[in-house]
Design a protein around this nucleic acid. Structure first.
Lengths: 136, 136
DNA sequence: ACACAATTTAGAACCATTATAAACTATTAA
DNA sequence: TTAATAGTTTATAATGGTTCTAAATTGTGT
């Protein structure tokens, strides 16, 4: 089975029509052994430099949000003026180098287990995200 | 010593001229035993409902950033479309209730010690911030 | 092939934030 | 006390990321 058909299946299973645009975006995001971090603008540049047929910014926004809602992408909580996403959806955390404004993955094994003792009635924990800021 | 003169001293010590506006902002932010979270717009509304003499939005932005740079406020890493600040600058973390879009403090004692095993050459840890998302 | 709903798209609108430049104010030196 | 200066405030404009809109296009089931 080729890659495109894997993405088509993945999209269909999520209730998303497998359009040309979405398949291309899958190729850029998921057709690599490495995970990576990106902003919408960086992704747009990446896609539109890779293919001659451009994808509109609105579609990239729509698709990234759809993928995030389906759990194929994670947004990284960060004090930045734009949203950053991560193709690595496994349980992990981040360094943020404040001097170089760069994100670095922290594998789960790089961080000790995190215990949350406080409980809020009627609420359950959805995620625990650690941001470690680095400076020179 | 009254409050205003404490703030005047605090501002002077930080190399910030103690202007009427900055003293008022100090009163709203720091003249309370409770710490709190706010966005710039919320702070602006709070200040301008409390005093007849209004403070411009630009000044509130400038002052909040100055206070953040001096370490009197912390910005909370969060995926929101506006910046959130915390008057509690002690070492602590946050719950974020995604359904009610509300921040809740986690005292340091509510979270077990966090160990970071990974090191980056030439960089030191500036802060460790944990965001625990809650859902219903 | 047809009908219908989902999707894409360019461009406008939105809104938090930052920049600008003129008026004002705190501070220091004379 | 006054004058000079640098710092601050302000209204307003500009910026830039994100969302909205509505028309054109496309995927899908019949």
């Amino acid at each position: 089975m080729n890659l495109a058909s894997i993405y088509i299946k993945k999209l269909r299973n999520s209730g998303l029509r497998p359009t040309k645009q979405r398949i291309k975006i899958c190729e850029v995001l998921f057709n690599t052994d490495k995970t990576f971090h990106f902003s919408i603008n960086e992704l747009s540049t990446l896609i539109n430099s890779k293919y001659s047929q451009k994808i509109s910014l609105a579609t990239i926004y729509n698709t990234v949000h759809a993928f995030k809602d389906k759990g194929y992408l994670k947004q990284i909580p960060l004090n930045a003026n734009q949203a950053y996403f991560d193709t690595n959806i496994s349980d992990h955390h981040h360094f943020y180098d404040v001097n170089e404004k760069k994100l670095i993955d922290l594998d789960n094994s790089d961080v000790g287990p995190i215990k949350i003792y406080k409980k809020i009635n009627g609420k359950k924990i959805k995620s625990v995200e650690v941001l470690v800021k680095l400076e020179d």
